[in-house]
Design a protein around this nucleic acid. Structure first.
Lengths: 199, 199
DNA sequence: CCGACTGATGTCAGCCACAGACATGACCGT
DNA sequence: ACGGTCATGTCTGTGGCTGACATCAGTCGG
């Protein structure tokens, strides 16, 4: 193309942008990988060199997100209750989604919510996150099954909070919402019977 | 073939058996759908009439399992703490996996554990279970996010217990293991700091 | 300053998952 | 006997995804 520049830079990012755009306007299944690639002047083969599969174009970069979670785990001094560690991880993770990112997250989630295959991948990524956190908890001396229970609970809290964060009309920060959900989790096992009058 | 019988009966089950056998001996990716079908005298096209996709041959029938979980939810009188409802659901669900089923579950899980695509599907099914249970909890008057938190926690307990149940050498019943894990969950938010002398 | 090397890309060929359309033939009720 | 149903087979096509090989700008050692 331009004789001075052999390739445009940031092929990965350009592909991601084009993919979200196409998925939004015509749907995930109705969009072919070749179509996305051609939209940014590349070929299908190159698309698959950047992303291991078609779904991954929407999830690429989440490994970085896992690291933020783990940083939050490491941020709390070592002998601590599992829930405290989880709270720290959530603080760290939620900081990764400032309010400015909300519109993008909403658009992305709209696409995911309309495709079972994408929901599968999303759950899978979150499961990987929980597995990583569970490993970190074990290294802190928390034994199984407590480590996995805590990690999965943290992932669940994040998921619920995130879903609320991108809901239409919601304006609280992700951190604030997550704090509230985590609080609910704390009540889960403590809550007494609502009414002793039960049959 | 046999002029008296046009088709062998139970095509779905025969396909499932052949699939597990082939996946075990040569791996999931190395086995084509056509291969499975031909192993039981059918064609690839027929395979996809029985299962929506290749992975589904290992998961077909789980909708029934969800129902067992929901039956457990309904089995406890209406005003009850979320954790009690979850406990009931777990009792009901674990009864669905008697010890005689353990060898089969082990073989199946071995295949799943070796394949990311299958793990994805497994998580997806479990997520669907949690969603269904959360809905049932909401109908019992438990509001969000408590309903989802409780349902997801129950699913996590089941997952952990199930993984332990099929571990080599494990001989306790699934119900016993699940009870223990659920107990751990109860301690999660209550547990004081571990021994400061740890490590 | 040149030639080997690297790295992102294109090209080509092919496998396989999966789906639509239509044909077949045993069974079943009437 | 006949028409409908239903599980299956056959044929054909699309798209996800991969291996092998070519290309060619920039880079770096000599």
């Amino acid at each position: 193309m331009d004789p001075m520049v052999r390739w445009e830079t940031g092929a990965t990012e350009r592909l991601q942008v084009a993919a979200l755009e196409l998925f939004t306007t015509q749907g995930f299944e109705q969009t072919t990988a070749a179509e996305i690639a051609h939209a940014v002047g590349l070929t299908e083969r190159t698309f698959f060199r950047h992303f291991s599969d078609k779904r991954e174009v929407l999830f690429y970069g989440q490994d970085q997100f896992v690291q933020v979670f783990l940083d939050g785990v490491d941020a709390v001094p070592s002998p601590a209750a599992p829930l405290e560690v989880i709270a720290s991880a959530l603080r760290s993770a939620t900081a990764f989604f400032p309010d400015g990112r909300r519109p993008y997250s909403r658009a992305r989630q709209t696409v995911i919510d309309q495709n079972p295959a994408l929901q599968e991948r999303e759950r899978h990524k979150l499961a990987g996150l929980a597995t990583a956190v569970a490993g970190a908890l074990r290294e802190r001396g928390i034994s199984e099954p407590g480590a996995t229970l805590a990690a999965e609970s943290g992932a669940t809290v994040f998921r619920i909070a995130f879903a609320q964060w991108i809901r239409a009309g919601e304006e609280r920060s992700l951190a604030d919402i997550a704090t509230g959900v985590l609080d609910e989790l704390g009540h889960l096992t403590r809550r007494p019977l609502p009414d002793p009058e039960s049959a």
